[in-house]
């Protein structure tokens, strides 16, 4: 069976070691995590993890069940119909045209967030595929550094 890209959200008690409990389930099966984001769920003792991975249906079903079995895990969502966004920060030399870069960024829900003497920094937030497109497009402006955030997702 072909490996498919999967997005899994896990709600966990916000405590030491919970992150390694979750990631151990992937590494123990030789599965790579493509991206992982973690942040506290507001006004609660929980955190939300968003994990992007790829694997066969059988293995990812197993991982979801095993995630449920971890004591500090409250909920696991394996998303099918979701809104997924990722952020990227890109640093350009200030010698590149700020107006061109800014125009492009605004097409990807972003813009210039910092202007220094030697560099400008752009932020965009969009679907992971579109973030990749953007990063391809801006190659010609000689980006010096790129940071991607990993995905966050909500079921529609």
């Amino acid at each position: 069976m072909a490996d498919a890209r999967r997005v899994i959200s896990v709600i966990v008690i916000n405590e030491a070691s919970v992150l390694s409990r979750v990631t151990d389930l992937f590494s123990g099966r030789g599965y790579n995590i493509e991206s992982l984001t973690v942040a506290p769920v507001p006004d609660s003792k929980y955190s939300r993890l968003t994990i992007v991975t790829s694997g066969s249906v059988r293995v990812s079903e197993q991982i979801v069940k095993q995630l449920h079995k971890l004591i500090p895990v409250l909920k696991v969502y394996e998303h099918a119909d979701l809104v997924e966004k990722e952020m990227a920060l890109v640093k350009f030399p200030s010698s590149e045209s700020p107006s061109d870069i800014s125009a492009l960024a605004s097409a990807y829900n972003g813009g210039i967030v910092n202007v220094g003497e030697e560099t400008i920094i752009v932020m965009i937030a969009d679907e992971p595929k579109r973030v990749s497109n953007f990063l391809n497009l801006v190659k010609r402006y000689h980006p010096k550094e790129i940071v991607r955030s990993g995905s966050v997702a909500l079921e529609r």
Partner: peptide, 14 residues
């Protein structure tokens, strides 16, 4: 110890 026992216990605590 908890790093080692994580994968061979139902749960563990430090």
């Amino acid at each position: 110890a908890v790093g080692i026992s994580r994968s061979c216990t139902k749960h563990n605590y430090l």
